[in-house]
Structure formats: C-alpha cells, structure tokens
C-alpha cells in the first residue's frame, strides 16, 4: 500500500488504519457537484485509454512471435474480466486480470511483460473491461464470457 501515500485524495477527509487494514472515510463535503464539462472530460480520458488499449490489444508488438492478444481474444472476449481476482491454474494462485495479461504476454506471445501500473497495462485493462460493460461481477465464475455484442465499430468513438 506504499503508493497510497503519494496520491492526492481531494475528497478524503480522514484516513484511519484499523488493525492493519486501511479504511478511507469520506465526510460531507462543501464542494459543488462536478460540472457537465468535467464529467465529459473524464469520460473522454477513459475512452482515450480504452482506444489505446484497443490498439495494444491488436498489436503484435507486445509479443515476439507475431501473436497479439486479439488472436485469441477478439473484442476482449474470453478474458472474463468480471471474474477476477480468482485462482488461475496457469498463475498457480489467486491472481488479477493484470497478472493474467502479463502471463499471456510472457507465455503464448513470448513477449516482455508490462509494469503493472504502466500506462499500457492500465489501457489494456480499460479496453478489456470496457468490452464487458454491464456484465455482472461474478467472482471465479467458470464460464467463458463473450464481449458485449455491438453491431459495428468498436462500440465507442475512435478518433
């Protein structure tokens, strides 16, 4: 949890540590609600990350044998983003989607793994998650899930 210290929590008014666990509480705040513009900007920032993730997802550059994530996971399908963290046999432990992404890069794609908090990794996670928008969280559900069907295009505006 050492990263927490470096982050700025504008809305957080108190941070209490109780028996080792970090609990963040938020108290009534005087701030005005976020403006439409602000919300639109934040949404656009997410979609930029999703689009970047889409490009990486379909790029052979992450691997060394020509394969891209999309070879086996078109539209981010079969990533089962709604089931993580869970015990994953290939990881041999309870792991996260990011760990599985790195496993896929390292093993089937024979590439170099990404830093877990790198812009690239966050973009990949954003893409995979966005393709499953609306799917109910189902920890460890042992059933492959397709991406949310969209008629054409990536299901979001590309620039």
């Amino acid at each position: 949890m050492k990263k927490v210290r470096n982050m700025s929590f504008a809305a957080v008014t108190s941070v209490i540590v109780v028996s080792g666990a970090l609990i963040i509480t938020s108290m009534a705040q005087a701030k005005p609600p976020r403006s439409e513009t602000q919300i639109a900007q934040e949404r656009a920032a997410l979609m930029t990350a999703v689009a970047k993730g889409d490009d990486l997802w379909h790029s052979a550059k992450l691997g060394n044998n020509g394969l891209a994530c999309a070879n086996c996971h078109p539209d981010g399908s079969a990533t089962n983003v709604h089931t993580w963290p869970k015990f994953q046999t290939n990881l041999g432990k309870v792991g996260t989607l990011r760990e599985m992404i790195n496993w896929c890069i390292a093993v089937p794609m024979q590439g170099r793994i990404l830093e877990y908090d790198s812009e690239e990794m966050i973009a990949m996670e954003a893409y995979a998650t966005f393709t499953h928008r609306g799917v109910a969280i189902a920890p460890a559900k042992d059933e492959q899930h397709g991406a949310v069907p969209v008629k054409s295009g990536p299901g979001y505006p590309r620039h």
Partner: peptide, 22 residues
C-alpha cells in the same frame, strides 16, 4: 488457436468443444 464462442445462443449447443487451457 481456438476462438472463443461468440455471445449468441446456439441451437445445437451440445455440439461444442470445452474451453481450452491457454
């Protein structure tokens, strides 16, 4: 590589392979 089954109902859904180990 095997493609995942797309998110549609199949009439002959008993004629399918199980998911592969990557």
């Amino acid at each position: 590589w095997p493609w995942p089954y797309p998110p549609v109902e199949l009439e002959y859904s008993h004629i399918k392979q199980r998911r592969a180990d990557p």
